[in-house]
Design a protein around this nucleic acid. Structure first.
Lengths: 211, 211
DNA sequence: TCGTAAATCTAATGTACGTTCGAAACATGT
DNA sequence: ACATGTTTCGAACGTACATTAGATTTACGA
């Protein structure tokens, strides 16, 4: 062990990177260990020196992915001046979530894309972690609403789902270089806070309030 | 052939239903023909009387799913009075999309969920169809913007992606009986048109416009 | 240079799956 | 009742895969 990183650690990281990338691209079931091994520069059998099974590898990828986005959003809040507006708090959270998802992080995007199609057993092990992340967003939105920055007549749970959906779906269409992450975040926040509608000239009553 | 439906047609439909349901739940690669056959009340080998391969079955499920949502949204526009406001046009489109996705339609939700993880070959055969559906939305939104119902300083392509994301993601969390489809559509439209922000009392300049 | 532990390779094993095909069961018109 | 076409069965085949285990190579301290 010469440097800080043992050879084992390096191989582990290469395997995880390869796994995250392939899982993200092809999904869980369609990804073979042969593929992962090749991308990591070794033979399939060698993977078992580092991981007990394909599922174990999967679980670690999922775990890293969720941890990264959770930490990113959490840190975005801590970095903010204590007296920041709630709009700003939400804005940086949106940006942190998007940045993690789209900026070279196959782990988080793999988690987002394949979680629904992973063995039930594996899902169970990660529900707690997902709930924790949802709770983080719930807190951010609730505080904003309580302090008057968000309308009171909306179902915040629903808003959170729609918001997460808009953000998460970006893994399906985002292409680096086309639109900046900043621009996506700006549009998202504009929609969330102000909407993009313009009062239409005439016409009578419209139903803008929600039950 | 006694009635309008031959026995073959009935079996075909049962197989497709079973396939759509299973594909949607487990994804493409993780779904076995044995599973589909059992759900359709027959043996795996019998499927080949009706379909040439697993991929062919998959393609038909994808095709039906996309066609249904396309037709639903298209009809929602045609059913509308000719002088309807653009907000109403968008509102019924949102509702039609959501209703197709969430109301017992495993075909459309299967398409949405698994398209990204399907063999490239199969994807290619359906890109045209997907583009056509995107074009339908593009038209609806562009007309609204041109006639002054939507802000001009937004990237409509981006808005469409965020909107579709928010809607499509519902297949990941929606549970019948919890929240009505109508309520989801209302919240979505409120966000889209008005936003849910409230002007915060004091504080200086905020950046609401988009590059 | 040698010895030991770490890391990887290679070949083999078992299994699950997509697919094929001839036989059996079923339906229908005569 | 028979004959013919339709639909399903059931067993078999080949393949691709996750996993295992022993042999081999590599790294490194003594």
């Amino acid at each position: 062990m010469t440097s800080e990183q043992s050879k084992s650690d390096i191989s582990r990281a290469r395997i995880l990177d390869a796994a995250a990338k392939t899982f993200r691209q092809k999904g869980y079931a369609a990804t073979t260990l042969i593929e992962i091994a090749r991308a990591a520069g070794m033979q399939a059998g060698s993977l078992y020196y580092h991981f007990g099974s394909k599922d174990e590898l999967l679980e670690e990828v999922l775990d890293i992915g969720m941890r990264r986005v959770h930490e990113a959003v959490e840190e975005s809040q801590e970095r903010l001046p204590a007296d920041s507006s709630h709009r700003d708090r939400i804005r940086v959270a949106v940006e942190a979530h998007l940045a993690t998802l789209l900026k070279h992080d196959d782990y988080t995007s793999a988690n987002i894309r394949i979680f629904g199609q992973v063995p039930e057993e594996v899902q169970k092990h990660h529900i707690r972690q997902r709930d924790a992340y949802a709770e983080l967003w719930r807190r951010i939105l609730t505080k904003a609403q309580k302090s008057g920055a968000l309308r009171r007549d909306v179902d915040l749970g629903l808003v959170r789902m729609l918001l997460m959906g808009a953000l998460n779906w970006s893994v399906e269409w985002y292409q680096p270089g086309r639109t900046s992450i900043r621009t996506i975040a700006d549009h998202m926040c504009l929609m969330l806070f102000n909407g993009i509608g313009i009062e239409e000239p005439a016409r009578s009553r419209e139903n803008e309030t929600v039950a």
